[in-house]
Design a protein around this nucleic acid. Sequence first.
DNA 1: GATTGTATACATGCATGCAATAATGCACAG
DNA 2: CTGTGCATTATTGCATGCATGTATACAATC
Lengths: 226, 226
Amino acid sequence: MAVVQKHLGSSQQAYEVLKRRILSMELLPCAPLGEQKLAGELGISRTPIREALMRLASEGLVELVPNRGGMVAPIRLDFVSAAQFVRESLETAIAHEASQKIDAIGELSLRQTIEEQKLANREGAVELFYQSDERMHRRISEIAGRPLVWQHIVDAKSQMDRARRLNLQGAPSFDALISQHERIINALVAKDADEITQAMHEHLRQILPDMKALQESNPEYFAVND
Amino acid sequence: MAVVQKHLGSSQQAYEVLKRRILSMELLPCAPLGEQKLAGELGISRTPIREALMRLASEGLVELVPNRGGMVAPIRLDFVSAAQFVRESLETAIAHEASQKIDAIGELSLRQTIEEQKLANREGAVELFYQSDERMHRRISEIAGRPLVWQHIVDAKSQMDRARRLNLQGAPSFDALISQHERIINALVAKDADEITQAMHEHLRQILPDMKALQESNPEYFAVND
DNA sequence: GATTGTATACATGCATGCAATAATGCACAG
DNA sequence: CTGTGCATTATTGCATGCATGTATACAATC
């Protein structure tokens, strides 16, 4: 949930730093997270670290074993699959609402993100592409008048994001993604309900087939299947 | 005083107790939540209370003001609306999958929940009805093979649940809800995609119209609209 | 009488101490 | 050489102390 606060406490700061490092794969899955060590690195005491770790554990990004401490949660295929289902369901429903409300200004802002992505693609700027991609999807939620629903998507998405980042690093050509984005925007503008569903489906479901290959190339990041 | 189980941490206990009390409206919206007061009531120290409050705050059930402490989050109409959207989108998508996979055993278990609800209705057992309702929806997720997605629904739903509980207390006749449930189950068994969508729509969207009346009869539980 | 400045009281936010628990290393027996 | 039992060690989980920041009450002033 969107929390606005003026002065950032150490606890909040630790939470944000750790979450960013986990999602960016700077802290790799299964990396140990000792309270003492983290407290030393961040220059604060164990208490705010503990609070941050517990929040991250409730989001599924950290696994805590009682009396044994924590580690960055390994990627679980079944969690990723559930997150994908949530994302596709919500974003498809949002897209249908957005198509009913989109105006010229909304369309322009979406077309602009496409230009950003083409630029990032030409220059091989993975991080910029990633951010613009995110911005486009969020913008659609805003156009639909569902900004709060976007937060739910972000929460669900966090499991997928790490796998996605691995994937993007490997294949630095975003042509396919860009044309999928264009298809989505065109469908929105055309208010073509079936085409919206198909376009979102094609775009968001692409992650799943890559997952198996990803697990084989980086098995150390994945949990054993239960 | 809470009975502390040996193998469960105090922090987890505090979280569960507070969450249950908030969702059941035993702790009313806008009730103050002082750390030491709660620590005294639960017979533990402030640290695990703090951890519980922060987790609940990240779920939107508690509002924390820096240096001022916390209170039970007031019900926000825009949050409820977002939660309703999430729930309807996900449960409808789940229902479509469930209709492809349901077998005689699954149907039987759903019909059984209907019987539970009719019984609870006859006896005016609000709590039992509530639990059986929950069980039926969760069962559909299991039939669809999406038990993990149900967790996302539960998370989103928590905002709605308090309002819903207020509502159920006021109108202790569940005839309409039961017939809606029957319509959903029949649509699942018939594998009628349009009817599934319509039935879920009718059932899950019923909450929204009641919200306005609820806010007028209990304004003290709601946040002022931003 | 209303308003503002100040002092007090109180709650939070973080650091640290202490007990309990699980992992680790080592000795010793088989 | 290997497996088991014990002592050691390191880490978590919780309690508590101290500092910071806010609200409140009261008094002084306009």
